[in-house]
Design a protein around this nucleic acid. Structure first.
Lengths: 193, 193
DNA sequence: AACGGCATATAGCGGTCGCTATATAGACTG
DNA sequence: CAGTCTATATAGCGACCGCTATATGCCGTT
């Protein structure tokens, strides 16, 4: 019948494809996005996706790298020396609350949520991507309170997970920011002692 | 060939099936447990599962009800009148930390984690199951600090989600309990003011 | 003992999953 | 222009998904 559909279209934009995949994976999570969803969103067919990215998991990794490069919390700006540690870490939580609610459809932290994927490879990718951020927080805390560094860092990371999870439930930005502020009050006591 | 395999086995224990399903769903989450996993664990074939429970989603609901009945935090014991509110709520967080790490293979809160399932029906079931607990906490907080009840309750619920999420990552009971204690320090300030 | 009802069994439905073998169209090189 | 190479297209692989039509063995009733 309509043989013109076989007409080959021009090569698609790889980087644009990663951007679209990033949005999809962030909105729904690795497991809930199928290769069919991805190819439909990218306007291509499966062999093109595999030729360009290798696999769904590798495309996820590229999407995560793009996310980490563009959406990471600005730790450098938050951890400035002239700021009191408790204030800086509270700012970190509040800023996270804002980041996690910046987009109504892509809520929470893509890396944090990726660590809970059902797919083992995706989970390990996300866990690996999370390490630099965790290390940066741990290092900062250790500079100001080496004795309680582990405990305080765990508290921060746990609260960040709470913020991301709460954001994914659709809770408002105001709610999250208020929770971040309350969580920050514990830090004042930790650094005052 | 071996026609004796057709021999029908005695009826299986429905309640025992719910117990096994509860463990599986808690360990891996709704989406990651297939009907084949369930029937294999129960030692039955799919038609028996559907005859007994209706569907995977309905078996999940029964498993959740069993979990809520057996594993719910003892709010009655924690919210005793003679305890200071900040202390009671800190106890709640610490007790949650212990509950969420009671079993090495079934970590976190089954209801909390169920609220993030990919399947819409399972998610709504979990969300519905979570309401009584949230309401009980909100009522307790409102009795002691009506002006800040919403904010404090959100902070508690968010921290509980953080604890559950951290537990699912395999973090130790000691880590979780310490985080719960740190989180509790914010509450002292909230109720002192 | 005969029988009806039901929970089991076998077998397989239509659908989706991630992924790929093969063919062909277009771009680049000589 | 002819030839080569790559990225597209069609079509479909085997595996698994939740679920079920149908047949049969067992039990309780009479």
């Amino acid at each position: 019948m309509n043989e013109q559909t076989r007409k080959r279209r021009p090569a698609f934009d790889r980087e644009k494809g990663v951007e679209i995949a990033q949005r999809l994976f962030h909105e729904r999570g690795y497991d809930a996005v199928s290769v069919a969803d991805l190819t439909a969103a990218l306007g291509i067919v499966p062999p093109s996706l595999y030729a360009a990215y290798g696999s769904k998991a590798e495309l996820f990794e590229r999407a995560m790298q793009r996310y980490a490069a563009e959406q990471a919390l600005p730790l450098d700006e938050i951890f400035v020396p002239e700021k009191a540690p408790a204030q800086a870490l509270t700012d970190l939580l509040v800023e996270a609350a804002r980041y996690y609610t910046a987009d109504d459809t892509s809520r929470g932290c893509m890396i944090t949520e990726g660590m809970r994927a059902d797919d083992r490879v995706a989970r390990e990718t996300a866990t690996r991507m999370a390490e630099p951020g965790s290390d940066a927080i741990r290092n900062y805390v250790a500079q100001h309170n080496p004795e309680r560094a582990t405990e305080i860092t765990d508290y921060i990371l746990l609260t960040l997970r709470g913020l991301s999870s709460y954001a994914c439930l659709g809770r408002s930005r105001e709610k999250l920011v208020e929770c971040a502020r309350i969580a920050g009050k514990s830090l004042e006591q930790e650094f005052a002692a």
